[in-house]
Design a protein around this nucleic acid. Structure first.
Lengths: 331, 331
DNA sequence: CTTAAGAAAGGAACCGGTTCCAAAAAGGCG
DNA sequence: CGCCTTTTTGGAACCGGTTCCTTTCTTAAG
């Protein structure tokens, strides 16, 4: 491995001169050329460790994700990665497998590695998180979750769910099951449920029941089966697309036709929702864009610039075949 | 930030003694205790850069993936991550967005960062790859693709496709469309096609046509539509689950019933294939396990141990509702 | 009680960069 | 041409560890 000392010797100059050449200090044209030649010949690349050791920081942005095998995470990561790459930064991913402790550990671990910033795709923010945020003194941005004390990029869960609620009512549904997730997850568990609740609450002669399940399709399938048996709604509004897929499967197994016998909606806009049959009515989130924005904001934070506390990303309600329209029938 | 010098001063010993304490040299019980106390008090953690600078290597394993938003990649990464974490290693992911050049770049970039090893989830191995492998002098393991000169963990694509071919014949299909991908992808494009071909080639009075598409569901949908119109097969055998999802959608759009009017099979065993209706007959690969194995082998390579050139992972043909059985009809 | 061997601790060099400061060279102006 | 300013360059210290070598202190054997 060639070092800066080798280059200096070969070019007949001092180490400091080479360093200046590399980092843009003042150099005479003659020496510049000499060094240039030697570097090109040897293919010299500075040692990152030595640089970081001296600089006490890196141009790495750490990203903490609860799971890798999720459409939302993957798309967000892609957005972050693209943006950081453009800025010459590296992204390092830490997967926590939905283990809260590991989430905290990852924060400290990133801090030890002197990352320039941390982007956190958390599901909830505990006191431990806040403590870590304080201690590590590194810029932090939350994606998909919100907290008053932390910068965050969030999807408009409340508004999207409200739009979904309105949409469902417009389609004429009056016996509705809402299949959500744990309220520990602020965005998915609470915001979406509340948005939906507020949309349907004004409607008279409308029966809405709220249920809860996990994030997996298997559990959603079981829960939906029970809902169909016990409540017989005309529609199941699901808090995520995966849950909706489980609900669809439950309907198929029960021999129900979607949307004639039962309508289903999702949340997220996963690619696959377009390709199942019937296509799923869902809310499409801008995961990749959220990642991009997060990365952009992070770069600003690293530069010491001010940014807004909260940035919202857009959503789009995509109406597709999985929802029956009673209104149409009445025409 | 506390450094080893601080600890040494506070404990009243020399830097080297603290270093020895940390790395397990010979130390007296009294000094050991003193150092221990100070370190616990300060929460001191050694600076990774300084360590790596001296050691000229890291305990990081780089992983290069063509895309993050793929079930196969994600599961493999999870397997790698889990295994490495157990061994106290870190995994760093480099996403190439299916850009071949960036794949090569990533290799060199990892080399510069002195990673201990590189796990490559490539789709094809070019001369540029081989050149990079040679130059960087870092252990490399391929996952999902095979090359005579490189260690690899591979799925039994040929055998799996052969099993699928037999299965399809057993079900009584005799007018078969095989929808594959580019032969540039050895595993998916060639191995699967050839395995299937060899399985069906012996069968008389059996018409098989081979088609090609991209990895996306959208393109698969288009291709499958054309196949249905032009060839009217009783089954479309697809080289991946995503392609199968596109094919299913094409059938639905055409108003064909799956499996009565058209059967469809996939490859991969993505979770969603179980939850669509009808469930998709597919080959389930052990992606996560492949990742685990890759990580284990990598750890061995790093330790300087010998490993086998090629390791095969298992597959399982899962017969589900998307394939009609003509044999049954004849009973 | 002496001596040799082994354990424990300290000191200094080194890893490969960056940066500060001083010295040398170049340029500008009267 | 000499003096002052500015630009280039070199030298040395430093970042925070590890490691080699040396010294000192124990301890066991003779």
């Amino acid at each position: 491995m060639t070092t800066i000392a080798d280059i200096a010797r070969m070019a007949g100059v001092a180490k400091s001169t080479v360093s200046r050449y590399l980092n843009g200090g003042s150099i005479g044209d003659a020496t510049k050329l000499k060094i240039e030649r030697v570097i090109n010949e040897t293919g010299y690349v500075p040692n990152t460790f030595a640089q970081s050791l001296k600089a006490k920081k890196t141009s790495i942005v750490g990203t903490v994700v609860p799971r890798l095998d999720s459409f939302a995470s993957a798309r967000t990561l892609i957005g972050i990665d693209e943006q950081l790459r453009e800025a010459g930064c590296q992204m390092v991913i830490s997967n926590t497998s939905q283990d809260e402790e590991r989430e905290i550990e990852s924060l400290y671990s990133f801090a030890r590695q002197k990352v320039a910033g941390i982007i956190l795709l958390a599901t909830k923010i505990t006191d431990q998180h806040l403590e870590a945020f304080e201690k590590i003194e590194i810029p932090i941005i939350l994606v998909g979750q919100q907290h008053q004390d932390v910068y965050s990029i969030i999807h408009q869960d409340y508004e999207a769910a409200k739009a979904m609620g309105k949409h469902v009512l417009e389609k004429g549904h009056r016996k509705i099951a809402y299949l959500g997730v744990t309220p520990k997850d602020i965005s998915v568990g609470i915001q979406r449920r509340d948005g939906f609740k507020d949309a349907v609450s004004g409607m008279e002669e409308c029966e809405v029941k709220y249920y809860q399940t996990g994030f997996g399709m298997g559990e959603a399938l079981e829960q939906a089966t029970r809902i169909i048996e016990d409540f017989q709604p005309s529609i199941i509004v699901c808090a995520t697309d995966n849950i909706a897929l489980g609900a669809c499967k439950a309907a198929f197994i029960k021999g129900l036709d979607i949307p004639k016998d039962l309508s289903v909606t999702g949340f997220g806009g996963y690619e696959v929702t377009e390709y199942i049959h019937p296509s799923l009515t869902t809310v499409k989130y801008e995961f990749k864009n959220a990642g991009k924005i997060a990365a952009q904001k992070m770069l600003k934070l690293i530069e010491g610039e001010q940014i807004e506390k909260i940035t919202y990303t857009n959503f789009e309600l995509i109406s597709r075949g999985s929802v029956d329209s009673f209104i149409k029938h009445e025409l």
